[in-house]
């Protein structure tokens, strides 16, 4: 069915079984990092080798795959990974969030609420939320075993003392199902609330660090905070310049060297969908309906 010299979705079947076993354990123990025998992939570590292995292990011929990086389908690494699967697995690929059954992502969660027929696969650089406090795996593993997360709370509280805020704007740690503190991968904290009670399965793959973890659907995911300093989602002062959305995560685009800026949706499919529905930001003029009336 495909002429590729490699197996369907590149990985050999024994490797897929090994990854599938890790995925099942990860689902049964939400937020716990399952060690797995990550393979050396034909793309560099740090480029999504963990996400690619997870996707390859679950992907079937019926799936429709979407790949995003920074929320966009057209960033070079997203293009490259999508091309890899189009070539090795011959699956349907799409940029439409609604149409996709498997979405591999780096650094964003799509704006559109995900559904129960979808799986979101995150690419993870450093899966250990405690790593920046304690570099040793031997130590952090014990902390997770004992659910001893005091060090994390001390760090967050020191932030408040120094900056008046928890000084983390992305890669913001969460507690999953009341047990494990988990690294959500470097998504902006704007996206954290989308992980909570999500309809879709969320899988996380860290290839270089050889870990897989998961959040099943309808699982409680809480961003760490304090009663007197509750978690706050970051807000933007402007709507999207292209589609006028005011509730989406925006990229800041520098337009000249005199302080010119414009803000546009980071989720390109979301933005295009809104424009197709007729929404217009200030850069594209008024709503088409209004323009027609004026003519």
């Amino acid at each position: 069915m495909n002429a590729s010299p490699y197996n369907f979705a590149y990985l050999d079947e024994q490797t897929k079984r090994m990854i599938r076993r890790a995925i099942l354990k990860a689902i049964a123990i939400p937020g716990y990092q399952v060690p797995f025998a990550s393979r050396e992939m034909p793309m560099p570590y740090g480029w999504g080798t963990g996400g690619v292995q997870v996707t390859a292990a679950i992907l079937g011929p019926e799936d429709v795959l979407k790949v995003i990086d920074q929320g966009a389908d057209d960033t070079t690494n997203a293009v490259s990974i999508r091309a890899f699967f189009a070539k090795t697995a011959n699956v349907r690929v799409t940029t439409s969030t609604a149409e996709a059954t498997v979405i591999q992502t780096r650094h964003r969660i799509p704006e559109m609420a995900l559904t129960s027929r979808q799986v979101l696969v995150y690419q993870v650089p450093i899966p250990e939320p405690l790593r920046f406090l304690e570099p040793r795996e031997t130590e952090t593993r014990t902390m997770h075993a004992l659910a001893e997360y005091g060090l994390m709370h001390v760090k967050l509280y020191e932030d408040i003392a120094r900056y008046g805020h928890i000084a983390t704007s992305y890669d913001y740690p969460v507690e999953v199902a009341g047990r494990y503190v988990m690294d959500p991968s470097p998504i902006p904290k704007f996206d954290n609330p989308k992980m909570d009670n999500c309809d879709a399965l969320q899988l996380f793959g860290a290839g270089r660090e050889k870990r897989i973890y998961a959040i099943p659907p309808h699982t409680r995911v809480v961003s760490l905070d304090f009663d007197d300093h509750p978690f706050e989602r970051n807000k933007f002062d402007h709507p999207c310049a292209l589609c006028g959305a005011s509730e989406s995560y925006l990229d800041e685009v520098v337009t000249d060297d005199k302080g010119g800026r414009m803000f546009v949706c980071s989720d390109t499919d979301f933005c295009e969908g809104r424009r197709a529905e007729g929404h217009r930001g200030h850069l594209l003029g008024d709503e088409p309906a209004a323009r027609e009336a004026a003519e």
Partner: peptide, 19 residues
């Protein structure tokens, strides 16, 4: 067909474990 039947069986099992 070990590749595709294996994948289908795994996805069924994964769906069951997920829900």
């Amino acid at each position: 067909d070990p590749v595709f039947e294996g994948q289908a069986a795994f996805r069924a099992l994964m769906d069951a474990m997920v829900r």
